[in-house]
Amino acid sequence: MTAPELFDEEGYLLDLNDWNESLAQEVAAKEGLDLTPAHWEIIHVLRDFYTQFEVSPAMRPLVKAVTKALGPDKGKSIYLMQLFPGSPPKLAAKIAGLPKPANCL
């Protein structure tokens, strides 16, 4: 199992460089998610977004980024909610090893 000191109290990765795909799977499992290819493509969009712009997107920009990368069928909040229930930007950021989106209510 993963050392708990890799994460903060809410389960976000402390050092973004520690992220890898098997770590993502462990985090997802703790959240009750089984990662499918549909999850992975969103995780990669999110990580690309962070790498390019140095910010974790909130819902609206995430939807736009997914639309741009994967097309309008997937760039919908309903679709993202199905994959990452609750708050897709927060949950997906947690699994993708990114900081919690700032000012997320």
């Binding site: 977004f49 390019q52 712009f53 140095e54 910010v55 997107p57 609206r60 920009p61 736009k64 980024a65 741009k68």
Partner: peptide
């Protein structure tokens, strides 16, 4: 933070 990098992301925030 590398704010220059954020500029290209502004379009996602309209």
């Amino acid at each position: 933070k590398h704010l220059f990098k954020l500029l290209d992301g502004l379009e996602f925030y309209d």
